[in-house]
Write a protein that binds this DNA or RNA. Structure first.
Length: 334
DNA sequence: AATGGCTGATGGCCAAAGAT
DNA sequence: ATCTTTGGCCATCAGCCATT
């Protein structure tokens, strides 16, 4: 959960001494817990300080830790998703999930085929996320963390842009039925409004609608398997639920939408995180590596290999002053 | 302990070639 | 004609190192 001052050392010790079994247990720790943990660790290492032997126990550090833990209850959705340690979910993908889906409740309930429509999320990553939230143990951990008082400052509605991307074809594409390609799934999604309609129409009508007979036969075989059918129905229900949450289409596009920037070196007036946040608030993406697709690189002091690469690829290189000007132009100046 | 940078491995995306 | 595979490129992830 990104708690200041709580590193691997302490966490390992807390687990070793049976004081913490799940992440949520951290929120039940007190100053006394940490002092006891430290005493046990010192005893094990034979490194009990003289002052402690004399009966003086330092507690300031433990007080700081407890305060840090308390402070970490006020989290953000991207940070929380990242902290869950889901395979293939780093900072960037966590942010994608948060901006597109809006809330933890939605993220938890979004089936893999639907996750696949988000940018930079394909088969592997979508499966990994859905599998994580399907595991009972993980469900419990997440619930326990929420019960411990974790809140998110930035939850909201899912992106209305999802409306265009979702449909029955999304589920059919994910099923990977042989011979059933994007043309056929798009056709079926246009013709039938739900899984029930699709099934009751039947193979014969699919062919009449224009689906190649081999593809139709494969799809019929796929749907005839009760496991597949149930999954299709469940996923469709979850997708419909998600569509229900979508707000009316958004107002205007953000000014820097579609642009990718890279920041390298040290900035004088802006911290890197701050600069990133401001650019993202304008719709830009801030990436970690330079390619031809990069809009521009903002280089501060002591820029290294990224600057070289930008020059090599002919990507525009700008200064910190340019960055400030760009932010000011769109009303996001510091 | 935290921050930032670097890098190898891997997933995602796109377009063109190949297969049915 | 549509589906499937392939290959190239890009971005992220995850682990490591140096610095402070």
């Amino acid at each position: 959960m990104d708690i200041d001052g709580l590193g691997d050392r302490f966490v390992d010790a807390l687990v070793e001494f049976d004081m913490v079994h799940t992440p949520a247990d951290l929120y039940g720790l007190t100053v006394e817990s940490f002092v006891r943990m430290k005493a046990l660790a010192d005893e094990r290492d034979g490194s009990t300080p003289e002052t402690v032997k004399q009966g003086k126990v330092a507690t300031k550090w433990a007080e700081n830790l407890v305060a840090s833990i308390e402070a970490s209850k006020k989290s953000t959705l991207p940070r929380f998703l990242f902290a869950l340690g889901i395979m293939h979910i780093g900072e960037s993908t966590a942010k994608t999930l948060a901006t597109w889906l809006g809330s933890l409740a939605v993220v938890r309930r979004t089936p893999a085929p639907v996750l696949r429509v988000l940018p930079d999320i394909g088969d592997e990553v979508a499966t990994s996320i859905a599998a994580f939230f399907e595991q009972e143990g993980n469900e419990k951990v997440v619930d326990a963390l929420l019960a411990a008082g974790i809140t998110f400052a930035d939850e909201g509605a899912p992106s209305p842009k999802l409306r265009d991307r979702l449909g029955l074809d999304v589920l059919l594409d994910a099923a990977k039925v042989p011979k059933l390609g994007p043309k056929s799934t798009a056709l079926l999604a246009k013709t039938y409004a739900s899984v029930q309609e699709l099934v009751s129409a039947g193979e014969h009508n699919w062919i009449i609608a224009g689906v190649p007979s081999a593809a139709a036969a494969n799809l019929w075989a796929y749907i005839s398997d009760p496991t597949n059918y149930r999954k299709l129905v469940n996923d469709y229900a979850d997708m419909a639920w998600l569509l229900d949450q979508l707000p009316a289409a958004s107002a205007t596009a953000l000014p820097l939408e579609g642009h990718t920037y890279v920041i390298t070196g040290t900035m004088e007036t802006l911290k890197r995180d701050d600069a990133t946040e401001r650019l993202e608030s304008l719709g830009a993406k801030v990436a970690g590596s330079v390619s031809k697709k990069t809009t521009a690189v903002f280089a501060g002091e002591a820029a290294g290999s990224k600057l070289d690469k930008a020059k090599e690829l002919g990507v525009p290189v700008h200064t910190e002053a340019d960055l400030l000007a760009l932010l000011a132009e769109h009303g996001a100046a510091p």
